[in-house]
């Protein structure tokens, strides 16, 4: 049986010769056709079920022949970039809000200090990863996503992460709180300002 493939609601004329194609090959073929239109596959539905982790190799390796229908939804490069920027701003907001909570816990010896510090640390790593992905995508597709090049902040963030790691490993909670309160927080606020606040 030949599976039906729909792209943004329109059925594609797709032939699975020899019944040996995989989901990954289908996606690749579709995205090759979409590149010129600066669109990408964003969602994959198989037999009426949305696959959330479909970019993972286990899904991409599955054969097409065992399923009845595939529905692919696409988004434009601009839509993806905006979604990425929203995500980055959310990471920055949450991290910025976590800093005073963690500082307070560290200063008073609160029990949640470890958990809130981990959230900040992980948040910073995600911020760097997302900024980098957006910067690369923006460069590839000639989009000016940031007011300033985010790469100029990477070294400062890495230095901050290293300083905090050392303070934490040395059990120096006062220094850790100082780094968070007096270095990281103003830095994050400044970075946010310099990346996103365009002058009208």
């Amino acid at each position: 049986m030949v599976p039906h493939v729909y792209l943004d609601g329109i059925m594609l004329d797709f032939e699975d010769r020899g019944n040996g194609s995989t989901i990954g090959e289908l996606i690749e073929a579709v995205e090759n056709d979409l590149t010129g239109a600066r669109r990408f596959v964003m969602e994959l539905w198989v037999d009426g079920e949305r696959l959330p982790e479909w970019r993972g190799s286990t899904v991409l390796k599955r054969p097409l022949a065992v399923y009845n229908d595939f529905k692919l939804k696409t988004a434009s490069m601009e839509e993806i970039a905006l979604e990425g920027l929203d995500l980055l701003q959310e990471y920055i907001r949450v991290t910025r809000e976590n800093i005073p909570v963690c500082v307070s816990d560290l200063r008073i010896g609160g029990a949640r200090a470890d958990a809130s510090f981990s959230a900040i640390f992980d948040g910073l790593v995600e911020i760097v990863k997302t900024m980098d992905a957006l910067a690369r995508g923006g460069e590839k597709y000639s989009m000016d996503l940031f007011k300033e090049n985010p790469a100029i902040f990477y070294n400062a963030i890495l230095r901050c992460l290293e300083g905090m790691r050392q303070a934490r490993e040395g059990g120096d909670t006062v220094m850790l709180a100082d780094l968070l309160e007096y270095e990281l927080l103003p830095f994050v606020e400044e970075m946010e300002e310099r990346l996103f606040h365009f002058n009208a």
Binding site: V174, M175, E181
Partner: peptide, 21 residues
């Protein structure tokens, strides 16, 4: 012993937070 015992920025503000708690 390698640890900072009061904030290197604002020890009084740090102490106020502790006192409040």
């Amino acid at each position: 012993q390698g640890r900072l015992f009061h904030s290197a920025y604002d020890p009084a503000k740090e102490a106020q937070a502790q006192a409040k708690e």
